[in-house]
Amino acid sequence: MDDIKIGEILLPGDEETQKRQETNVRAKFWPTMKKAMRQVPFSRDVIAAFYCATDRQTPLRVRGVLLAALGYFVLPLDAVPDMFALIGFTDDIAVLTTAIALINGHIKDRHYESADRMLADAPEEGAA
């Protein structure tokens, strides 16, 4: 992460950039989240951030910051490759933690309720 500044990653970008970022995040979020669920200690917050970022009622700048962070999270090649167990998601966690702290208060109860429903419906790992 030394070469990459979190502040640079979290730039919200213009509307066109956000549209591209949202398309990428929507396509890759759930497969990435499924792999990361046990390694990201605040999965509920990350999922609520996804719902906040894709909510048209969320202010554009907030959506941009979250989409940038989630875009980094779903990026297959980042500062620390996610395939490395335990440490692979540490850079993603740093970016997501910063983004969530920056937009604190914009993730609404409805976003957390959606996250809770998804987590309740998620199959347990190893379950057939």
Rank of each mutant, 00 (worst) to 15 (best):
T23Q: 07
F29H: 10
Q18I: 03
A68R: 07
A48S: 10
V46W: 03
A79W: 08
G64C: 06
A115M: 04
R38I: 01
D14K: 13
W30G: 00
Q39Y: 13
L10A: 08
G126H: 06
P41Y: 01
L10Y: 03
F89S: 00
E125V: 12
R44E: 11
F42H: 04
F42C: 02
K34H: 09
V40I: 15
M33A: 15
T17P: 04
I107H: 09
R61K: 15
E8N: 11
Y51V: 06
I6R: 12
E16W: 04
E15Y: 09
P12W: 08
I4E: 13
E8Y: 14
I100A: 05
P31F: 09
G7D: 14
F89Q: 01
A122Y: 13
Y72R: 12
Y51Q: 07
L119M: 14
G88F: 02
A115G: 07
E125H: 09
R61L: 13
T98H: 10
E22I: 03
I4R: 12
I100F: 05
R26M: 09
H111A: 05
A101C: 08
H106I: 01
T54E: 10
T54A: 06
V25K: 07
R63C: 08
I6K: 12
E15R: 12
F42E: 05
A101W: 13
V95I: 04
M83K: 14
D78Q: 15
A68L: 11
L75I: 02
A120P: 11
K35P: 02
V46C: 05
F73Y: 12
T98E: 13
P123C: 02
A68V: 12
Y51K: 05
V25N: 04
E22R: 13
D92H: 00
T23P: 04
M118H: 14
E8H: 13
R44L: 07
R38H: 06
A85G: 11
P41N: 04
K5E: 08
R20P: 01
A69N: 03
R117F: 15
A120T: 11
A48Y: 07
R26K: 15
E22Q: 10
D121I: 07
Y51D: 13
L60T: 09
D45S: 09
D121V: 05
A36K: 03
S43F: 01
I6A: 12
E113L: 12
M33W: 11
L70A: 06
L66W: 06
G126V: 04
D109M: 08
A69Y: 00
L77T: 02
V25T: 01
D14E: 13
D109S: 08
L10F: 05
R56V: 08
K108C: 06
R38L: 02
D55F: 14
L77V: 09
A68W: 06
A68N: 10
I93T: 00
Y112A: 01
I103R: 12
I4P: 06
K35D: 07
P41A: 00
